[in-house]
Design a protein around this nucleic acid. Structure first.
Lengths: 361, 361
DNA sequence: CTCCGATGTGAAATCGAAACCACACCGGAC
DNA sequence: GTCCGGTGTGGTTTCGATTTCACATCGGAG
């Protein structure tokens, strides 16, 4: 690889002048600039980002920390982030569950990154204090828990979103509505759960304990929803609708239901959250809440660039809004409960065996 | 951020000794080692990767170049890559279509990366010569075209895979089999197409021009398959099976078929390639060819590490094998053609309207 | 007792670019 | 004619780590 010096030698100038041409700083005579540029082209010179980064204390690289690379929800956010960042020459590194939690932040703080973007950092927060990280390195967060953050923060009110989803089901006559979602250490960390409870309470509906299907271990596999719903079906819980915490869970649940012969939405309605593209491609198409993923990404990057450049640590919060999208997986509740129960009965024993195996694994 | 010097000062030694402790190189007295380690802990010192990289000419960072971040197929490969790499402290940057082709390789070659992994680099090759890149920087490739590569290379014979898929359909009595896939500049770049043609020819089946559904513009959206199949349905092409080039296309196609009232597999069989997790979660579950994605990833990383460490450029090729997975989306061909045609007719106008809308968006 | 290799440590050079400082030239204002 | 700010360029230092070289000490072999 050619260096600064090589170019300088070839152009008959000093390395300082080469640097000036490259960075468009200071005064350079037109003919000299030309000579340098020709030399750069001839040697195929690309400045070494490490050296530049070391000197500038700016590396044009951003770390994105996210729970899972498998959830398409995050892809769209990432695309938004990159769109906003690549134009300015930023590159991106991804860190997700596979990286050992105790290790990767050491790596990140090791001076390789201009900033960090945390997407849904609930896992991260078990180990690290984001406020502290924010003091060392420009940091922004996407989160749905409504926590106050000391760093800039994009927020989507999923409590409200879930409330709307469940209310739509209730309005269609559903009473036995399952909550399907992840379990958090603290109730207040679970806006989707809270929204579900809000809606049920407000409409005077009883929440049976069996309705609350919390998935404890974080498993970023696409089939967690399927596994859980398969278990649920063996337990003969009477329900006519499922309010899932995200589309992947909903799609998995739909699969389990359909496999057991339950018709959607005739017997059971299913609703999700996120509106990933796959939601439109499954049959029946999934009713869900649209979250402006792309927009979240660009907003995050804008916030981060703001923090990196303008040195003020403005602890701004941007809220984005969701909208309910009705498709085919929801419908009025008929005599749903009975039908569902019947189906369970026929699939009972087989299904039981399968679940026991899954639990063991 | 604390530096080398700070630690040295606190421990009462020279920076050279700190470095020795950190890298476990040379001789260090046990008590001194202890003092240094305490100082490191106290200052919360993390070595600056840029400085280290600059000096060592090794940066412990890998660039992954892939066509799309949206296709789950690549996620599993990425997980395999990272699994094999993170243990040794490597971090990863992702580059995909969103990055301007002309730009990103400049970035990559700018000395930030120890190596490049190209996943399905057909797009890349239009602009760059991978052999040349391989001479500058350790490079490995995953590809399915059976091209000879001058760099280490993981290969999966998708021509054979597609041949098997189509043969299975033929054995089930299908004759009118659609090929749904991407269009490449050159025929030989399209192993899936070639495998399809092999199977059809070998069984003496005629390939009507309408059977070949090439998607020209690369569009990494999940619904390309849906869009194309919607168009196909309006054209009343007689067919009883669809051999898609990957699972996403297959899932999209299934959606279009189901939306038009076509039953799968009773009226039309659909088969994919990749075996992404979603293939098991759609209804009916998708028959497909399992590609060992995780394994491809680990193999790639092993090859790359080999190239980075052992300086020999062993142009090794590793071939991984696929296996056919029969699920629910395929079945014997009945009087399929008639049924399908009938369905088209009844759904014709509606489908048309919907498609037009999608196009507009 | 001397010599030598193993052990242990520090000063200084180095990686490649950017920033800082110094200097030189030129034209116009006073 | 002198002074001064704008223009243009080069030498040197710096970023933070590793690495090389040089040097000191020590124990055992000859």
């Amino acid at each position: 690889m050619a260096t600064n010096r090589d170019v300088a030698r070839l152009a008959g100038v000093s390395p300082a002048t080469v640097s000036r041409v490259l960075n468009d700083s200071g005064y350079v005579a037109p003919d000299v600039r030309d000579r340098v540029q020709r030399a750069i082209a001839e040697l195929n010179y690309v400045p070494n980002r490490l050296a530049r980064g070391l000197r500038k204390q700016r590396f044009a690289q951003i770390a994105c920390v996210l729970p899972s690379i498998r959830n398409p929800f995050y892809h769209e956010i990432l695309l938004g982030i990159q769109e906003a960042g690549l134009a300015r020459g930023y590159t991106f590194s991804l860190f997700h569950r596979i990286a050992k939690k105790e290790e990767y932040l050491k790596v990140i703080l090791g001076g390789f990154y201009d900033g960090i973007i945390f997407l849904s950092p609930f896992e991260v927060e078990k180990v690290y204090n984001i406020a502290e990280i924010g003091e060392v390195l420009p940091t922004v967060v996407y989160d749905d828990r409504g926590h106050p953050f000391s760093v800039p923060h994009v927020y989507v009110n999923l409590r409200e979103t879930m409330y709307t989803n469940v209310t739509k089901l209730i309005e269609q006559g559903h009473r036995g509505i399952l909550f399907l979602g992840y379990e958090f250490a603290v109730e207040t960390d679970n806006p989707r759960y809270l929204g579900y409870m809000d809606a049920m309470r407000e409409h005077g509906l009883k929440v049976l304990p069996e309705y609350l299907q919390f998935i404890a271990d974080f498993d970023d596999t696409l089939s967690v929803g399927y596994k859980r719903m398969t278990t649920v079906l063996q337990q003969r819980i009477p329900f006519t609708a499922v309010a899932a915490s995200n589309d992947l869970l909903a799609i998995g649940a739909m699969r389990a239901l359909q496999q057991a012969g339950v018709r959607i939405p005739e017997d059971v309605s299913v609703v999700g959250v996120d509106d990933i593209e796959m939601a439109r491609l499954v049959t029946p198409a999934l009713s869900t809440a649209r979250v402006p993923k792309r927009q979240i990404g660009t907003r995050l990057m804008e916030l981060l660039l703001g923090t990196i450049c303008g040195d003020e640590v403005t602890s701004s919060t941007i809220e984005v809004r969701t909208s309910y999208v009705e498709r085919e997986s929801t419908g009025p509740s008929a005599t749903g409960t009975q039908l569902t129960q019947a189906s369970h009965a026929s699939a009972g024993v087989d299904a039981m065996d399968r679940t026991e195996k899954m639990r063991g694994a």
